[in-house]
Amino acid sequence: MAQLGYARVSTRDQDPTRQHDDLAAVGCDRVWTDAGVSGTTTSRPQLDALLDYARDGDTIVVTELSRLGRTVRQLVVLVDDLGARGIGVRSLTQAIDTTPGQGGGIGTLLLSLFAALAQLEREVLVDRTMSDLAAARARGRVGGRPTVLPPDKLAAAHALLAAGTPKTEVAAALGVSRSTVYRAIERERVAMTAGVR
């Protein structure tokens, strides 16, 4: 039953010494450190090595939960996977410990509550965004990046294509990429099919 420390800094300029000191102070037997690795990065070599090394009864200790992952969903999935292997997770800053026999049930409950709140926040954000987009469309506004091919250039593209000019040459003549011409024509076709101009 070992306490295994994990430290992570996002850039190579940052110093993980404080994390190492805090992990050593609580009695971590060994510390794995990822340097220059963002929390959103899926591949964290030292964390992967730690996860391979950890055994049933061990506890992975971090100074704060954000060292293990940037999103609550990442954390919950990781903690669930570790819990199924009999491995606990302890955060020093948040005072959460999922280790069986060390208040593990309460720690897991807290993480689950965080996950539920994060999910609710995501759903509210999506609903709000969709409502705002619908209101904008009702006022005749369409979101997104403005088209690179305004109506006059699109009309010129149609005229050149109707004359048999290859799309690559049409794009060069208009000063845009060939994919821009394809997208503009496709967007116009979809809009016409939907009855919108």
Rank of each mutant, 00 (worst) to 15 (best):
A2D: 03
Q3A: 03
D13S: 05
D22E: 15
A25E: 05
V26G: 02
R30I: 12
D34Y: 02
A35P: 02
G39D: 02
T40E: 04
T40G: 04
L47N: 02
A49F: 04
A49M: 07
L50K: 08
L51R: 13
D52I: 00
D52C: 05
R55E: 15
D56A: 13
G57N: 11
I60K: 06
I60M: 07
I60G: 08
T63D: 12
L65Q: 00
L65N: 01
L68D: 01
V72C: 06
V72D: 04
L75M: 12
V77T: 14
V77R: 13
L78G: 06
V79Q: 10
D81W: 04
A84I: 03
G86Y: 11
G88E: 11
V89L: 05
R90I: 09
S91H: 03
L92Y: 10
L92G: 08
L92D: 06
L92W: 11
T93D: 06
T98S: 14
T99R: 12
G103C: 08
G104D: 08
G105E: 12
S112P: 00
S112K: 12
L113I: 15
A115P: 11
A116H: 04
A118G: 06
E121T: 04
E123S: 01
L125I: 01
R128D: 01
T129P: 00
D132N: 00
A134I: 04
A135H: 02
A136N: 05
R141A: 07
V142R: 14
T147C: 07
L149V: 15
L154C: 05
A156N: 09
A159S: 14
L160K: 10
L161M: 14
T165A: 09
P166L: 10
K167G: 06
T168W: 04
A171P: 12
A172V: 06
A172P: 07
A173L: 06
R178F: 03
R189N: 13
A191Y: 03
G195K: 06
G195H: 09
R197V: 12
